[in-house]
Amino acid sequence: MLSTTEGYMTPDGRQIGGVVMEMKNITLKFGGVTAIEDISFDIHEGEIRAIIGPNGAGKSSMLNVISGFYIPQQGEVFFRGAKRAQLKPFEVARQGIARTFQNIALFEGMSVLDNVMTGRLTHMKAGIISQSLWRGPAEREETENREICERVIDFLEIQSIRKTPVSRLPYGLKKRVELARALASEPKLLLLDEPMAGMNVEEKEDMSRFILDVNDEFGTTIALIEHDMGVVMDLSDRVVVMDYGKKIGDGTPNEVRNNQAVIDAYLGVSHD
């Protein structure tokens, strides 16, 4: 198991940097239910980190702790070397953490382009006067950020639906637009909550390729939750396995695959 702050080399020859985010002894309770119990793990810069586990294991809760929705009762979150105070979700976003949702959370009343542009909101600082006149900083910012968004739109191959209202799009494309919105903010850490849920094989292949490309071209650190084991094993550099709120495994896909506790959690244990 890797616990050093040094980077490491992946089998396919990518250099992974030091620790970018570290969760230390996180415990999260909802009343009497313990969703997460004393879990620690870290995410290195530039790696694809998967969180897996059966239903109800606490994976999404973990992501919600990272993005500031849930406040853990115990534990500390370190981001880029510094201990993170308890932040509101929008402050977390400003630190450079973007995410997508398990159930698509796009803005249905807006066009694809506007949705992607909302990803740039944390970077737009023009004052209210300038915005109301559409002159000076506001107009300049609009154009600059539009360029960045158009790059993301090109990258994810959604140029043709740029001006379509999101509510008219099919499921697979919505997922892609949501990824585009997260990418538009140029995140340092990208959290993906089941990016491939409900997709067919081709859509999954497309999405996998996009995730790998994002990691490869922008060097974005990615933490993802996924149920498709084939995808997880192929994509991720390291895997955290959770079950009933506890961490039962952590390591490279191969290590995890041969971990007895993980096999028991997924396949069940014989009781004789």
Binding site: F69, A105, F107, E108, G109, M110, M117
Partner: peptide, 17 residues
């Protein structure tokens, strides 16, 4: 855009900043 984001889904709006 920030207004419309709040209108359409306030939780997602908060998460993107």
């Amino acid at each position: 855009r920030s207004w419309m984001a709040i209108r359409d889904m306030d939780i997602a709006a908060e998460i993107i900043g």
